[in-house]
Amino acid sequence: MKDEKKTLGESLNRFGRVTPKSNRILTILLGILSFLSVVPFILVAIISFSSSMSIKKYGYSFFPKQWSLEAYQTVFADGQIFKSFGYSLVITVIGTIIGVFLMSTYAYTLSRKTYAYRGFLNKFSVMPMLFSGGMIGSYIVVINILQLRNSIWSLILPLCMSTFSIMVLRTFYQMSVPDALIESAYIDGASEWQIYFKIILPLSLPGLATIALFLTLGYWNDWLSALLYIDDNKIVPLQYLLIKMQNNVEFLSTNTSVGVAQTGNLPTETIRMAVVVVSTLPVLIAYPFFQKYFIGGLTVGAVKE
């Protein structure tokens, strides 16, 4: 079986892929695009490795007059960054697991045409995308009703579902899980849970990986929840640490009348950029973990083992 497929795939290979000339053109165009995407980040990284005095004097440059590790020394000297990293990691992992579970089950039921409440639940999940109670509404629910002030759950629970991801996932289920498959399983006497776990989940891995990635990004980038729900800097996730620095700089440089009392302690530009680099790298490193579910689509499809 395996062999047969392989030979079939190989013989069809010249149809299964673009011409070498198109390949070259596409590779180059994508290369340019990728270059444009990465240039600003490289600039940010270079700034983080420059001496803050040379930034003050000459502005940003791809070729700084003076390299320096001072920003990273400051960033790592304080144990805060490691603590923040730990919190971000815990929040992201727990949140992503809960979120994937909640959304995949919910979206799965939406994809089942025989489900009687499907229509209602569809609308039920679209409304929150359009109407939201805003910051005050959420604040009262999290703080007064759920009493989650200063709890790590206040940073996890409010973000674990999103209409967008549910709809993405629902569309995936509809595209990749044939109704006939479910019906035949049903006839074979499989329960809904068995169908969901044994048939649906394995078939929809790319979709799950997509929303898992979105959840990861959402949690990793979130800082507003921490700003609102955490007092006394008890839990400072990585992004929040960065936003704190940026907001402080922004605030103090536009409110000069505040009194100059504390501007001396402001993080320099190089330190802020170093935190950008430090907070972005973990996700970039984690990315390939999700990537293996998206890549290798069509062309290798025929020869995939």
Partner: peptide
């Protein structure tokens, strides 16, 4: 509370009718 977030945080606290005893406020 940090400079950059005091305003937003206290604004939310006040608007949602929370309890607290003393706080800094000002014209700016």
């Amino acid at each position: 509370i940090d400079w950059g977030e005091y305003d937003q945080k206290m604004g939310t606290l006040a608007n949602s009718g929370q309890k607290y005893d003393l706080a800094f406020s000002c014209s700016w």
